[in-house]
Amino acid sequence: MSATTESPRGTKLPSALPQRTHDGARRQYIYLAVGLVVLFFLPFVLPESSQPVLVRTLIYGIMAVGWNLMSGYGGMFSFGHAAFFGVGAYTDAVLLTNFGISPWIAMIIGAVFSAGVGVLIAYLCLRYKLAGSYFALATFAFAQMFLLLAQNLELVNRTEGINIPLLPEDSWAMLQFGQDSFNYYWIPLLLLAAAVAVTIAFVYSRPGRYTQAIRDDPVAAESLGIPIMKYRLITVALSCAITSIAGSYYTQYYLFVGPEQAFSMHVSTDAIVPAVIGGVGTIWGPLIGAAVVGPLSELVAAVVRNPPPFLEFLQGVSGLDVAIYAVLLIVIVVFLPKGIYGTIRERLRK
């Protein structure tokens, strides 16, 4: 019955790739470098109070870049990236509080662990030929199971969550600085830049090309001798590792992680929505989406606190920010299915 809306074929139109791979990749790296330099100086310009917004935006960015690799380039629509975010967040918290392991090392261990978990989940889903809605539902179910496990396991303190002890002095090794230190902004900025660099390298590499070919037409790709499962799992591993790093940094920045912060459905949504708004299956889309979504709730909160005269009825109302976010999501999906960046790029090419 479900066959009416699903086809076994790929879910995206093939994205036109530049002819000269090396030039294309080099140009993207240059954009990245320029963007990094500009964003590096952002805290000097913006007021101090904007730092939490910037950090949250960067975390969204890392999550969305990770999600985009698997779902945008790999064509495997994950509705459970909270699982991988949460594994990173909890690995960091558990290793640090129980064994005193530096968050940097915990971040790497978490990424490897998360990639392993992701590969296992994706292998099961692909092995049993789940596609389309069923793949999304299965990943969703795994994330929900992780949420329930976290709520019930003594190791991770059940529903209480884990607090990271606050250190008295700055420490690079333990990733803790004074409250308003710019380091809290620069570190995720570099992590995000690294994630984008990985995406560029992957997209223009041979495995990346294979992955996109598999997404566009798995049957044709397989008939050309591409081992489908292998390249899909490589993509999933990369995607999960990147998302996990966002989770580890989340724990370090907020010095707390609980089941809801790590594994709830809203975390998965936070990985999906920036990518969808910016443009799925593009390098820069997730970043643009994060830049739109990240500051949204602060802006709305500022308006609601001090509304202009014609919006006075909104004073003190809660929920408006997410409502706007939801409308934005619906409007983009209905009218700009390629996202903001994807649509602009298409217009410019014409």
């Binding site: 074929r9 879910t11 995206k12 929920g319 409502a323 939801a326 999501l329 619906i330």
Partner: peptide, 21 residues
């Protein structure tokens, strides 16, 4: 032929309804 656009729209709809309420 994609399943994900309707899913994303209903996801947005869900958030919208809950927050308008």
């Amino acid at each position: 032929s994609t399943h994900e656009r309707p899913l994303l729209v209903t996801l947005g709809l869900s958030l919208l309804i809950i927050n308008v309420l």
